[in-house]
Simulated assay, not measured.
Amino acid sequence: MTPSITDNNIPIPDIGSASGTAAAAITEAQTISADEVALYDRQIRLWGMEAQARMRNAHILVIIIKALSNEVSKNIVLAGIGSLTVLDPGIVTEEDLGSQFLISEESVGLNKQRAEAAAPALQRLNPRVAVNVDTSDPRSKGVEFYSKFDIVIATELDLDCLLYVNDITRKCNRPFYAAASYGMYGYVFADLVKHDFIIEREKSNMRTELKQETKTRSVTAVREKKDSGKTVEFVTKQELYSPLRSVISSKVDSTWRPRRRRMVPNVLPGVKAIWAFQQAYNRLPEAKRGDFSEMTRLIMEANRDLGLPDDIVKSDFIAPFVENATSEMAPVAAVLGGILAQDVINVLGKREQPLQNFLVFDGDTAATPILALHPEGEEDGAA
């Protein structure tokens, strides 16, 4: 039977522990129907039946459905997850039509919630995926609610709300992503707590050792398989993560040389400045003199807190960054949403190196550098 759109009165299945979920996925891999194999044939060839089964069993929560999360939701629904729950108390406005493709003009002026308006389009993308709607405030939910999901993705939230959700996902041992787009700029943050993944590669002459590769990544297991006369290695690695509460006060790596520090994009202190501005004024900065002045101060302060030299903040960056803060651009949302969705798919499939841990997007240069931000003195990188 095709799953139908449901509301927040219908419970989501209890997904249990991470290990229990993996075991269920392996069992379920043997029972994927022939039409599902045909539908997802290309991606099954890419990442295997077991990874597809994990996706089929995955329950994912997306908080706030706007331009960026439109892209994320579209990609993971098309990949064949088990269910998607959209949590958003917001009402549809005319501004939502400018950069979203899940909401139609008919929903404007009806006092209709964004989540309810977007759900039918999401359901049409893949009728096999159960699409659930919840119009509550994210801060009204507790451990019992967030523990039902395999992955929680929070978009366009202020820092206090992000911290609230991430604190709970940590208690539940659930992977957490935070992301936002600010016109030509944006970020993606990942806290996967502790994540194991497998790298498949042809065995080289060098023996793969079980060891710690970086402050956050270790090789924990290696197995081999003969394939068409070649020896293929399956290397299991583990990444340890820091929660957002620790990351917001972290500096860039103290071992970085001055040249590398000077290459850190201004978007990083810019994002931290927006968080501080929202905490102080309960809104995003706007293109007016007082906000420009305050954001200049906050960006410089955030830059110093990161351990970066003052002169790397470019004077021609601050004005467009502030002007972009309240806008959404579909191309930027597509880039950031594609990156985030691909990382979610990799995490569910336990394949490939996951994002560690703070990606920023600079539309001026089309760059998407990833910076590992962790508290100093913590050798494993996790807090």
Rank of each mutant, 00 (worst) to 15 (best):
P138L: 04
R124F: 09
L125I: 00
A119G: 00
C172T: 10
K148N: 15
N166G: 07
R170L: 12
S136E: 05
R174H: 04
S181Y: 12
S181V: 15
R128M: 08
L162V: 13
I103S: 05
V131L: 04
T135L: 02
A121G: 01
V108C: 01
D137P: 13
S136Y: 05
S147M: 10
T155Q: 10
A121N: 10
D137F: 11
T169H: 01
D167H: 11
S104L: 09
N166P: 06
K148I: 04
L102E: 09
Q113V: 10
K171Y: 10
G98C: 11
A180E: 15
L125S: 01
V129N: 03
I153C: 12
Y164S: 06
P175T: 00
A154F: 00
F145D: 11
F176N: 02
E156S: 14
I153H: 05
R174C: 12
P138V: 08
G142D: 07
E94C: 14
Y177M: 04
R128L: 11
L157Y: 13
V131I: 13
T155R: 06
C161Y: 15
Q100F: 03
K141T: 03
M184Q: 12
A121W: 07
L163N: 03
C161H: 15
A115G: 08
I151V: 12
S136A: 11
G183C: 05
D158R: 12
R170K: 08
R170M: 13
A115C: 05
V143T: 10
E95T: 13
A115V: 03
L125Y: 02
S181H: 15
V129F: 04
L162C: 09
A115N: 06
L125F: 03
Y164I: 07
S104E: 14
T169A: 03
Q100W: 02
C161V: 08
L122E: 01
R170W: 08
S99M: 10
L162K: 12
S99T: 07
E105I: 13
K171D: 15
A119P: 04
L122K: 00
A179C: 10
G98P: 05
A121M: 06
L122V: 01
V131H: 07
D96G: 01
K141E: 12
Y182P: 09
S107L: 09
N173D: 15
L125E: 01
R174G: 09
A121D: 06
G183M: 08
L110R: 15
D150L: 10
T169G: 12
Y177R: 08
N126E: 06
V129D: 01
F145T: 04
E144M: 09
N111I: 07
D160V: 12
D137H: 13
D134R: 02
N132Y: 09
R128C: 03
A179D: 14
P127Q: 02
S140F: 08
F149S: 00
A154K: 08
D150R: 11
R124H: 07
A115L: 08
F176I: 02
F145W: 02
R124K: 12
E95G: 13
F176M: 03
T155A: 10
L102I: 02
D158M: 14
N111Y: 03
E95P: 08
R139G: 12
D167M: 14
N132S: 09
Q100N: 14
G98F: 11
E94R: 14
